[in-house]
């Protein structure tokens, strides 16, 4: 016998396995419940005349039960497949639940709306690609970091790269780009630097005795009458590429002349300094000349 009131009293006040009391209210877990709330009108067990909508893999069914079938639990629910279209579904519901209580019909339609929206959302989400969250096994991670460290040490990266680059250099990949003969390049640089230094020296040392020097040289020429050498000397100052022999001769002559004149012109301290520096410069020139000869 079906006694809805008795069932409801038992369910509500004694025990119901579908009821779940949480802080926000009392809810029902029964899948046939239309609203999901535990109350008299929406309890699927305590209502002998009841209808609901259920979802079977995206297809909605209208479930109805009546008191006539209450004694046959096997055929308790009458099931109607609902069309995919929302409006048509509403029509079907209206047709099947024509003389049912208006409140229940309204609840069912509300549920239908909610479920349709949910279905749309689910399909959208299914189409979207989502990032998969992976586990990070601590053991493997640690092992890999350990092995990586060791592999890096074993690789000796700088050495390996240098070796590879040198191999390429030898294979001539860099030919004509910067594969200069380094020695020659450096030597030319050296000589250039030396030249530059020489010039600097001359300039800096010439500064404070220039007048005396010129005078002295004139004296030289006048006294000894070696105009030829003087000319060659000038040349040597101008051109670094002058011949060695010439320079050496010159030096000798000049030294001799110097010694001769030192005694007579002792009262000028600048000249001595000047002369010495002068000789020094010339020696440097010789060196430079030699180097250049060696290089070319």
């Amino acid at each position: 016998m079906q006694h809805d009131e008795v069932i409801w009293q038992v369910i509500r006040h004694k025990h119901c396995s579908f009821m779940s009391k949480i802080s926000t209210g009392i809810f029902c877990r029964n899948p046939y419940n239309v609203t999901g709330i535990c109350n008299r009108s929406s309890c699927p067990l305590a209502n002998s005349r009841y209808a609901t909508i259920r979802d079977h893999d995206g297809v909605f069914y209208l479930y109805m039960k009546t008191i006539e079938r209450a004694h046959k639990p096997n055929d308790l629910w009458e099931r109607v497949k609902l069309p995919k279209n929302y409006e048509k579904t509403l029509e079907v519901i209206d047709k099947h639940l024509m003389y049912w209580p208006k409140l229940l019909v309204h609840k069912i339609k509300q549920r239908l709306t909610k479920m349709t929206q949910m279905r749309i959302r689910m399909r959208k989400l299914a189409l979207k690609t989502r990032e998969k969250i992976m586990t990070t096994p601590r053991k493997e991670k640690k092992r890999e970091t350990r092995r990586e460290e060791k592999a890096e040490k074993a690789a000796v990266l700088d050495k390996a790269i240098e070796k590879e680059l040198l191999a390429r250099l030898e294979n001539g990949i860099y030919d004509g780009i910067y594969n200069l003969p380094f020695n020659k390049f450096i030597e030319t640089l050296d000589t250039d630097e030396l030249k530059a230094e020489d010039e600097n020296e001359e300039e800096s040392e010439v500064e404070y005795v220039e007048a005396n020097f010129e005078l002295e040289e004139e004296d030289d020429i006048e006294d000894l009458g070696m105009k030829d050498y003087h000319i060659s000397n000038d040349n040597a100052v101008d051109d670094d590429d002058d011949e060695e022999v010439n320079a050496v001769k010159e030096k000798r002559v000049r030294r001799w002349s110097k010694s001769a004149h030192e005694k007579s012109e002792k009262d000028e301290p600048g000249t001595k300094l000047k002369k010495k520096s002068r000789i020094h410069v010339e020696v440097d020139h010789e060196d430079g000349g030699e180097r250049q000869k060696a290089t070319f």
């Binding site: 060791k150 592999a151 074993a154 690789a155 990266l157 390996a160 790269i161 780009i177 910067y178 020695n183």
Partner: peptide
Amino acid sequence: NFQGRRVVTFHNQRDFIFFRHHRYIFET
């Protein structure tokens, strides 16, 4: 461009690929 003297290295050692990026110069 070899005159850029840039080298990018992918060195494989024990299945680890080490990436390095260098500038280099050849010297005697």
